[in-house]
Design a protein around this nucleic acid. Structure first.
Lengths: 220, 220
DNA sequence: CGTTGCATTGACTTGTGTCAATATGCGTGG
DNA sequence: CCACGCATATTGACACAAGTCAATGCAACG
């Protein structure tokens, strides 16, 4: 296992690579993204500490996208062989990993719904609802407040919008006192209203113990 | 294993279900889709025969989306236990299945790029390029011609557009003699031009033997 | 033949993008 | 402690891709 530090903006893994290791985010914040030939960028996922953004590289030789640090981050690289070895010792691990990649895919689907069928306001609200829940799940959010070091341009690239429009929508959400946002701190002020605007349904995150959000029953 | 026939438009699996079986498409054509509370629909994937659209249900209890037949289709339902049993007998299977779900996820990412960052013309061109390649891979396309029984409304719901706009774009593509389209037959007339318009890069499909498309080298 | 589901058109609206200027905040070095 | 420079955020004016609505056409089918 190798530890490496990355500066803001640096690529951790690059599209086209054939990685021999998976990377585990220890501290910081990373994203996955793809570029079109003419430079348009689509951010595919955000990963707080604890995530393994390229678990797929275990079975897919070529990276079809990149992973980049969005703030100074520490990443652990774990050799594929070691992971394979571990799964042979503990066959349950394989299912745990597989499940992780399935939740990954479920999150992509949720984003697709947003990109295809939600308005700009709904998309931004939805992203904030998702990130809040995920940060809570790893104990990095308290009272609706969490730290997400992204620029408005990053949000635009994640949600298929322009930076200018993201700016305008954020102003609306702040004016309506749904959220407060002073980089890098995001505060959700009226969670229910935000979730209603976003039509947020956390089923897709497949969390075993959903934090008791109003109106959302825990799985049996 | 249970065989069942579905009519066009019928749901094979429904969001919220907790399936005990996976479904294998034997004949016909199915899609996965999600609905927003107000009825907006996003199609998430198309599945020709040979695909298992809900392999994920092996590990994710609740369906976070639905599967529907887009034409009369025959589907085989295979009990999760049987699949589990098979993977215990042949551990390699588990990796094959896992890999399938990873390619599924890679395809979602590719669609996200389209939904977020491609124009309507590019999106439609890209979808056609992808489907052509996937139909070729299962021997269901010949000379750039294949059969895909979708309406313009379906395409709209897959690509985040309106049916009217899809209609207009298709007319452009036909006028420019990139494609011909008489339901349910799609013919790609000038493949290179179409792929260039779409900025199509098939890496994400992770096919072992890419049909020798010009300019695309086979994997080492 | 009427009905039904799609495709096609035209007229008009609108959400979001683009461009370009200006503001704001922050870290650095003098 | 201030001045500078950079990145990011904010504004305003304007453009345009794509959406909406509603009518019409067309073909398959019972």
């Amino acid at each position: 296992m190798i530890l490496r530090d990355f500066l803001e903006g640096q690529d951790v893994v690059r599209g086209g690579d054939r990685p021999s290791h998976c990377c585990l985010v220890l501290t910081g914040f990373v994203c996955r993204y793809a570029l079109l030939p003419d430079g348009r960028r689509q951010i595919l996922a955000f990963h707080p500490p604890g995530d393994v953004p390229d678990l797929q590289s275990l079975h897919l030789q070529i990276m079809d996208h990149s992973v980049a640090a969005m703030m100074p981050s520490t990443v652990a690289f774990i050799a594929h062989e070691h992971i394979q070895h571990a799964t042979e010792q503990h066959p349950r691990l394989i299912h745990a990993f597989w499940r992780e990649t399935l939740i990954d895919a479920a999150t992509f689907r949720a984003w697709m719904i947003g990109l295809g069928r939600r308005s700009a306001h709904e998309r931004i609200a939805h992203l904030i609802c998702e990130m809040l829940l995920r940060f809570e799940a790893v104990g990095l959010a308290e009272g609706g407040v969490f730290q997400m070091p992204v620029t408005q341009q990053d949000i635009a690239d994640a949600l298929g919008l322009s930076n200018v429009h993201v700016n305008r929508v954020l102003q609306d959400l702040r004016r309506d006192e749904l959220i407060a946002w002073q980089r890098p701190m995001i505060a959700v002020l009226r969670r229910e209203a935000l979730e209603e605007l976003a039509m947020f349904d956390p089923t897709y995150l497949h969390m075993r113990n959903l934090p008791d959000a109003p109106g959302v029953a825990a799985e049996a």
